[in-house]
Simulated scan of single mutants.
Amino acid sequence: MMRIILLALTNFAVMVVLFISMTIIGKLFGIDMSAGSMSGILILAVVMGFGGSFVSLLMSKWMAKRSMGVQVIENPQTAQERWLVETVRRQAEKSGIGMPEVGIFYSPDPNAFATGASRNNALVAVSQGLLDHMTADEVEAVLGHEIGHVANGDMVTQTLLQGVLNTFVIIFARLIGMMVDNFFRSNNDESSGPGIGYFVGSFIADILLGFLATAIVMWFSRYREFKADIAGADLAGRQKMINALKRLQSAHAVHDLPGEMAAFGIAGGLGDGLKKIFMTHPPLEDRIAALENMR
C-alpha cells in the first residue's frame, strides 16, 4: 500500500511542477496557454510529453529504492553479497559501463530489475526469492540480462520513445478536439474559445491514442527483452541464460514488478489475447526458443 501511495504522490508532484513550468513559460514568452491555442498546445505537448518521462527517468533509482524497499549493498557483509557485487563488477567492466549500484529487495518471487538515468548511473537489484530459488549460474545469467539493459541504454531509449509518443498524443488529441468542436458548432455561434466538443473530443482521443502509444511502447519493451537475453548469454553463457529462463518458467507464481520497473525486470507476467499487446515481456517460451536457435 505504501508503494502505491508513494508512487501516486510522486506523480502528483511531477504534474504540479510541470504545470507551474508551463505557466512560467507562458508568462515569460507571452505565449497563449489557453485551451485551443496552437502555441499553447505545442508547449503543453513538449513539456508534458517529454517532461514527465525525463523526470521519471531522473527519479527512477530513488523511486525504485523506496517503492521496492531495495537495500543497496554498500559494504558486502556475506559471501553471497560479495559474490553479487563482484559478478556485477565483472560484467559491467566487460560491457564497458560504469559500476552500477547493487541491491536486494524482499520478494518471495524470483525477479530482478535494472534502472537508472544513464549507463554509468544505474541500479541492478535482485529479489530474495531469486537468490533463494536459483543456482549461482542462473543468477549470474539474470545479472547479465540486467547489465545488458543498462549497456544497451534501454532506460534512456524507452524514455525518449515514451516522450515522443506522449507529445504526439497530446497534439493530435487536441487537434481532433478542435475538429469535433468545429463540426458541432452552428454557423451563427459567435462565442470565442473552445466549446464542449473540444474538451469531450480531446478527452476521448487522449484515451484512444494513449492506448495506441502504450501498445507501441510495450512492443519495444518486448523487443528489448530479446536483446537483453542475448547480452545475458554473452556475459554468462547461453546455456546459463536458457536455464535461468526455464527456472522462471517453472515458477508458477511469477508477478510483474510494479510501475515502470516492470519493463526492466527479468520475468514479466503472463497474458493471453489482447493482454499480450500490453505485456512488457514476451512469453518465456519464445525467449527460450530464441536463445536455443541463436547461432
Rank of each mutant, 00 (worst) to 15 (best):
I5H: 02
F12L: 15
V14Y: 14
V17L: 15
F19A: 15
I31Q: 09
G36H: 02
I43K: 00
G49Q: 01
L57F: 05
M59G: 03
S60H: 11
S60Q: 07
S60R: 01
M63S: 11
S67T: 15
Q71C: 15
V72F: 04
E74I: 08
L84N: 09
T87S: 12
S95Y: 07
G96C: 13
I97W: 05
G98W: 05
G98Q: 04
V102D: 02
R119F: 09
A125M: 02
S127H: 02
Q128K: 12
Q128M: 10
H133M: 13
V139K: 08
H145L: 13
V150Y: 07
L161D: 14
G163K: 03
G163W: 00
V164A: 13
L165H: 00
R174E: 15
G177C: 11
M179R: 00
M179F: 01
N182L: 07
S186P: 00
P194Q: 15
P194D: 15
F203Q: 10
A205F: 07
L208C: 07
L208R: 00
I216F: 09
S221R: 06
F226G: 09
F226Y: 12
K227N: 15
A228P: 12
D229K: 03
M241D: 05
N243D: 14
L248T: 09
A251L: 10
A253T: 06
V254Y: 00
D256Y: 01
D256C: 10
G259Q: 05
A263D: 08
F264V: 06
L270H: 13
D272I: 14
T280S: 13
H281V: 09
H281W: 05
H281A: 10
D286F: 04
L291F: 01
